[in-house]
Write a protein that binds this DNA or RNA. Structure first.
Length: 435
DNA sequence: TCTGGGGTCCTAGGACCC
DNA sequence: TCTGGGGTCCTAGGACCC
């Protein structure tokens, strides 16, 4: 392996300014908005099915509760320390996220909403001291108006702003805002960033790099670029350049259409009968169709999959999937459910305890560009779907549903500790007001 | 007893064609 | 013994992200 100390010659004054605003422990912070008694107390939020820890408040992190850890493994610590536990409440978090993003959008012309709790802002043209003041202003406004604490990192590339954000969160000296514009600061930050904490370098790649004694982001940029390209491909090369201050990733200002759309769930208890799998896949197919209708998309194919519980070594394992074409692009629940049922019947094998089933719609295209190709039948069924969507949005999900989805739903997922949907569900809103 | 869900991009390898 | 070669397109699987 070749080493080089040569760095890009533009590092003394890097012009571009990209800010990454990230909500702190987002789901936990959402729960606190409506229950201020939780401030300062340890909180965790669980994944679907109450399976794993997916968000921890700072206090919960200090107790040694790890991200992604199965709930049952840390139950003891949780009980001993009186940690408050919540099932995930995505309708609440989604609504709070939207409010945060609306505020952020007022602070820059160019904004990329990167995930439910993160956005990149283009802050080009500011002097460094102005950036600091501006970021403080952003931070205070989101806290005051929504009640969500955020951290802000600024850098000349997205990858550096990610690193800055990480430091802003972890090191108290930054007080929530870290600006990395001068090469001397960037270098120091890269030295303080473990290789596995670099955006785009995951478990496998960091393990590989550590074999070569590349342990920090700074070690990484000392390596010969050719070696990186050869061993880590274009993605590795891009990370290298971004860390050196050469921007390779632009802000995506217009969200692109989805290429696929998936709905899948684990079961509360293992499922053995084909009837239960049929009901659940009908339910998820109906939901995924609704999702693509909301986005004005049509699908031309689907993938149906089943899995047994791979963690349970004592039981025999089976997993399978099947790809099915649709005769023409559609977002019609009835047609999609029908085809999905064909799929599940073809991959079902008797004698296994199934843990999970799901559907992925593929070959998505915009409905408005396809209409000239569609037949009369499409417009009639489209009207039916529109009516169903209107009723369900007014009177609640699944007010009208397809018979194949079933009624008993023995297979439904576990969600025992869910908070009220304070902002989106009428009955819950009333609850808050009456408190 | 109990281990999430939904996405993207890249790459290698197979199918197919001339 | 010995069975072309190069291009394109598609797909499955891997790795990663939040």
């Amino acid at each position: 392996m070749l080493y080089t100390t040569q760095l890009p010659n533009n590092h003394s004054s890097l012009q571009k300014s990209i800010a990454l605003i990230d909500c702190n422990n987002f789901y936990a912070s959402c729960e606190r908005i409506f229950n201020p008694k939780l401030i300062g107390k340890p909180i965790v939020v669980l994944s679907n099915n109450d399976g794993c820890i997916i968000t921890r408040s700072t206090e919960a992190k200090k107790l040694g509760i790890k991200m992604g850890e199965p709930y049952f493994k840390v139950k003891k610590i949780i009980e001993q320390n009186n940690v408050r536990v919540f099932s995930s409440n995505y309708s609440l978090y989604g609504d709070i996220s939207q409010r945060v993003m609306e505020i952020l959008a007022n602070f820059a012309e160019d904004i990329e909403i990167y995930s439910i709790d993160e956005a990149f802002l283009n802050l080009n043209g500011f002097e460094n001291y102005e950036i600091d003041t501006y970021c403080n202003h952003i931070r205070n406004k989101v806290k005051k108006w929504i009640g969500i604490p955020v951290s802000i990192g600024v850098g000349s590339t997205k990858t550096i702003s990610k690193i800055a954000n990480n430091l802003a969160k972890k090191k108290p000296k930054y007080k929530g805002i870290c600006i990395l514009k001068e090469w001397i600061d960037i270098k120091e930050a890269l030295k303080n960033t473990f290789i596995e904490d670099v955006w785009g370098i995951g478990r496998k790649t960091s393990a590989f790099l550590k074999q070569y004694n590349i342990n920090s982001a700074h070690d990484f940029i000392q390596i010969d670029k050719g070696w990186i390209k050869k061993n880590l491909g274009v993605i590795g090369e891009r990370i290298y350049l971004e860390l050196c201050g050469i921007s390779c990733l632009d802000l995506e200002l217009i969200p692109s259409d989805k290429k696929s759309c998936c709905v899948s769930r684990s079961f509360k208890n293992p499922v053995e009968k084909i009837q239960d799998l049929e009901e659940s896949i009908s339910c998820y197919s109906s939901r995924v169709s609704e999702k693509i209708r909301e986005e004005g998309l049509l699908a031309d194919a689907m993938n149906i999959f089943v899995l047994t519980n791979c963690f349970n070594r004592r039981e025999k394992q089976y997993s399978n999937s099947i790809k099915l074409q649709l005769t023409y692009p559609t977002n019609n629940s009835i047609k999609i459910v029908k085809r999905a049922l064909e799929g599940i019947r073809r991959i079902y094998r008797e004698g296994y305890r199934y843990k999970k089933v799901g559907i992925v719609l593929q070959g998505l295209s915009r409905a408005d560009t396809m209409q000239t190709l569609l037949d009369h039948d499409f417009f009639i069924s489209n009207a039916v779907m529109e009516t169903i969507d209107t009723i369900n949005s007014r009177y609640g999900n699944s007010t009208v549903k397809i018979a194949a989805e079933g009624v008993t739903k023995k297979w439904i997922m576990r969600r025992q500790k869910v908070s009220p949907s304070y902002t989106t569900r009428f009955e819950d809103l009333i609850k808050v007001k009456c408190k």
